[in-house]
Amino acid sequence: MDINKIKELILPLILSLTLGLAPFFPEPHILGKIKWVAGGANGMQLIDWFDLVLHGAPWLLLLITIVRLIIPEKKDSGQTS
Protein backbone atom coordinates (compact mmCIF):
# COMPACT_ATOMS: atom_id res chain seq x y z
CA MET A 1 0.00 0.00 0.00
CA ASP A 2 1.22 3.45 -0.92
CA ILE A 3 2.40 5.68 1.96
CA ASN A 4 0.13 8.51 0.75
CA LYS A 5 -2.89 6.22 1.06
CA ILE A 6 -1.91 5.38 4.61
CA LYS A 7 -1.56 9.10 5.40
CA GLU A 8 -5.09 9.70 4.11
CA LEU A 9 -6.43 7.13 6.56
CA ILE A 10 -4.76 8.55 9.68
CA LEU A 11 -7.15 11.43 10.48
CA PRO A 12 -10.41 9.53 9.82
CA LEU A 13 -9.08 6.60 11.86
CA ILE A 14 -8.09 8.79 14.81
CA LEU A 15 -11.46 10.59 14.70
CA SER A 16 -13.34 7.28 14.60
CA LEU A 17 -11.44 5.80 17.52
CA THR A 18 -11.79 8.92 19.68
CA LEU A 19 -14.90 10.99 18.93
CA GLY A 20 -16.63 8.06 17.23
CA LEU A 21 -16.37 5.83 20.31
CA ALA A 22 -16.36 8.36 23.19
CA PRO A 23 -17.37 7.93 25.97
CA PHE A 24 -15.85 4.47 26.09
CA PHE A 25 -17.40 3.05 29.27
CA PRO A 26 -19.69 1.23 29.98
CA GLU A 27 -19.99 0.82 26.19
CA PRO A 28 -19.04 3.04 23.26
CA HIS A 29 -21.70 5.72 22.86
CA ILE A 30 -22.31 5.04 19.17
CA LEU A 31 -23.11 1.39 19.90
CA GLY A 32 -25.74 2.42 22.46
CA LYS A 33 -27.35 4.78 19.94
CA ILE A 34 -27.34 2.13 17.20
CA LYS A 35 -28.95 -0.38 19.57
CA TRP A 36 -31.56 2.23 20.48
CA VAL A 37 -32.41 2.87 16.82
CA ALA A 38 -32.42 -0.86 16.05
CA GLY A 39 -34.84 -1.35 18.93
CA GLY A 40 -37.33 1.06 17.39
CA ALA A 41 -35.92 4.39 18.59
CA ASN A 42 -38.67 4.67 21.20
CA GLY A 43 -38.24 7.83 23.25
CA MET A 44 -35.43 9.27 21.13
CA GLN A 45 -35.47 13.04 21.08
CA LEU A 46 -33.86 15.47 18.66
CA ILE A 47 -30.71 15.70 20.82
CA ASP A 48 -30.33 11.91 20.65
CA TRP A 49 -30.50 11.97 16.84
CA PHE A 50 -27.94 14.80 16.78
CA ASP A 51 -25.73 12.75 19.09
CA LEU A 52 -26.02 9.77 16.73
CA VAL A 53 -24.97 11.94 13.79
CA LEU A 54 -22.11 13.49 15.80
CA HIS A 55 -20.67 10.13 16.85
CA GLY A 56 -21.43 8.49 13.49
CA ALA A 57 -19.83 11.14 11.26
CA PRO A 58 -16.21 10.01 11.86
CA TRP A 59 -17.17 6.43 10.96
CA LEU A 60 -18.87 7.63 7.77
CA LEU A 61 -15.76 9.67 6.90
CA LEU A 62 -13.58 6.60 7.49
CA LEU A 63 -15.83 4.45 5.29
CA ILE A 64 -15.83 7.02 2.47
CA THR A 65 -12.03 7.33 2.69
CA ILE A 66 -11.56 3.56 2.53
CA VAL A 67 -13.89 3.25 -0.46
CA ARG A 68 -12.07 6.11 -2.24
CA LEU A 69 -8.75 4.36 -1.68
CA ILE A 70 -9.99 0.95 -2.83
CA ILE A 71 -11.82 2.04 -5.98
CA PRO A 72 -9.33 3.27 -8.54
CA GLU A 73 -9.88 6.71 -10.02
CA LYS A 74 -10.80 6.87 -13.67
CA LYS A 75 -7.89 8.33 -15.60
CA ASP A 76 -8.73 11.01 -18.14
CA SER A 77 -7.25 10.01 -21.46
CA GLY A 78 -6.65 13.66 -22.33
CA GLN A 79 -8.41 13.34 -25.67
CA THR A 80 -11.13 15.78 -26.55
CA SER A 81 -13.67 15.47 -29.33
Rank of each mutant, 00 (worst) to 15 (best):
S77L: 14
L31G: 04
L17W: 05
L60W: 12
D2S: 09
N4A: 01
N42L: 10
L17I: 07
I6S: 00
D2I: 04
T18C: 01
L11W: 08
K5G: 08
G40K: 07
P72Q: 02
K74T: 02
D48R: 01
G32S: 10
T65F: 03
T80G: 03
P23F: 04
D76N: 13
I70F: 03
G40F: 05
I71F: 00
R68E: 09
V67P: 05
I14M: 03
I66V: 15
L69E: 01
L11N: 05
L11A: 02
K75C: 01
G78L: 09
Q79A: 13
L13D: 06
L60Y: 11
L9W: 01
P72Y: 02
K5F: 00
L15C: 09
G40T: 01
L13I: 09
A22K: 05
W59G: 03
I70W: 06
L61T: 14
S77C: 13
I47C: 02
I70G: 02
W49V: 10
L69R: 02
I71R: 14
K7Q: 08
I6W: 10
A22V: 05
F25Y: 03
S16L: 08
R68N: 08
K75L: 09
W36R: 11
D76K: 09
M44C: 08
I70P: 01
K74C: 01
M44L: 12
L52W: 08
